[in-house]
């Protein structure tokens, strides 16, 4: 059977020590037995490694950060679309999702399919809203508070025993042992991601994660559970293994069913004294998604099919005990490539 040609635009080409999911998503798409994809990379920074991975990314275009205004980003995507005829767009950053969700209809009318959560779904699982989310859907969530000032921070950390977690609204999480450390990280995180900063009760236990895909009608199209076996100093998985813990999948199904989540999702959980807490819900495919592909569930392919309005049968199982081991690799790049990218905004 010949594969269906499709042009898919992907962000998150920053395959660095805290990697974006773009390259793993592209690897999943490249391994699809159904699609023959042309991959258009959308990059925010000129040194995102994926730009130079020509065996994975056919062409890359520079795009403006969403912080420069979502209109500028969408206009640029539409300009690229006129050249590339993008069929599907898969955004991979939390911080850009809002712009793409807001413009999903504009993109659809132009012929670009997406498969994203609604703004309401996106907002309610925010770290700052997680306690209410847990209450609403009957899920165990550590106690947490969103704080915007030093006074609020001090008040919040006093309510929990040290250590406590200090988290940014999009990224970054630190364990702190005293008020001074909490203040330091409050400044560091708020300077980078703005406020609120989240103060969360620290739960001692084993961190387990699930990458999942919801069809928007309450069904889980796919879900794979993993334990990080090697964690970088930034808290990112540098190695992981698929696990068989049915309760994680039960929780995932419950979240999908009750929220009717549409698109990719990562649920970060902690197993503590046989109780499982949700510590974070990320509204996109995680950077370790290629493990799911390797374990038998090609979530990027399924996401692209859902975006194109195709019916996708839910995955029923995956291989347990499958591991990923990440590595770093130096590419040699000609200055001519950087020149072309800088001058023309494309490569």
């Amino acid at each position: 059977m010949s594969r269906k040609p499709v042009t898919i635009a992907v962000t998150g080409l920053n395959n660095i020590d805290s990697p974006g999911p773009g390259i793993p998503v592209i690897r999943g798409l490249r391994e699809s037995a159904f699609f023959e994809p042309r991959i258009v990379g959308l990059a925010y920074e000129k040194l995102e490694p994926g730009i130079f991975m020509h065996d994975l990314v056919d062409k890359t275009y520079m795009v403006p950060y969403p912080s420069e205004g979502s209109n500028a980003l969408i206009e640029r995507v539409l300009e690229i679309h006129r050249q590339e005829k993008i069929d599907v767009l898969i955004p991979n950053f939390d911080a850009e999702l809002y712009a793409f969700m807001k413009s999903a209809e504009v993109l659809r009318k132009a012929g670009i399919a997406t498969f994203l959560p609604t703004i309401a779904q996106f907002e309610e699982r925010h770290k700052s809203n997680l306690p209410e989310y847990g209450e609403r859907y009957g899920l165990d969530i550590p106690k947490s508070q969103a704080v915007g000032t030093l006074e609020e921070l001090e008040k919040a950390v006093k309510e929990y025993d040290f250590p406590v977690m200090i988290k940014g609204k999009y990224y970054d999480a630190y364990i702190v042992q005293n008020l001074q450390q909490a203040q330091n990280y409050f400044f560091k995180i708020s300077a980078k991601w703005g406020t609120p900063v989240i103060v969360q009760e620290y739960i001692i236990g084993t961190e387990l994660n699930v990458t999942a895909l919801g069809d928007g009608e309450g069904n889980t199209t796919g879900a794979v559970a993993m334990r990080k076996t090697y964690i970088t100093d930034k808290g990112k998985a540098w190695g992981g293994i698929t696990i068989d813990e049915p309760r994680l999948l039960d929780i995932t199904n419950k979240v999908m069913q009750q929220t009717k989540w549409r698109g990719g999702m990562e649920i970060e959980m902690i197993k503590s004294n046989d109780k499982i807490y949700i510590i974070e819900i990320n509204p996109r495919i995680p950077a370790w998604v290629y493990l799911a592909v390797g374990a038998g569930q090609n979530h990027p392919e399924a996401l692209a099919k859902l975006a194109l309005g195709m019916k996708v049968e839910p995955f029923e199982s995956y291989e347990v005990g499958k591991m990923f081991v990440r590595y770093s690799y130096d590419m040699i790049v000609s200055i001519k490539e950087l020149e072309k990218l800088t001058i023309n905004g494309e490569l």
């Binding site: 387990l208 076996t229 992981g240 068989d244 813990e245």
Partner: peptide, 19 residues
């Protein structure tokens, strides 16, 4: 029940991925 034990003495606990 779900613990996997190989003839070489390698033990894998699939519920947590520990070996």
């Amino acid at each position: 029940k779900n613990i996997a034990i190989s003839d070489t003495g390698y033990v894998f606990d699939p519920s947590i991925g520990e070996s």
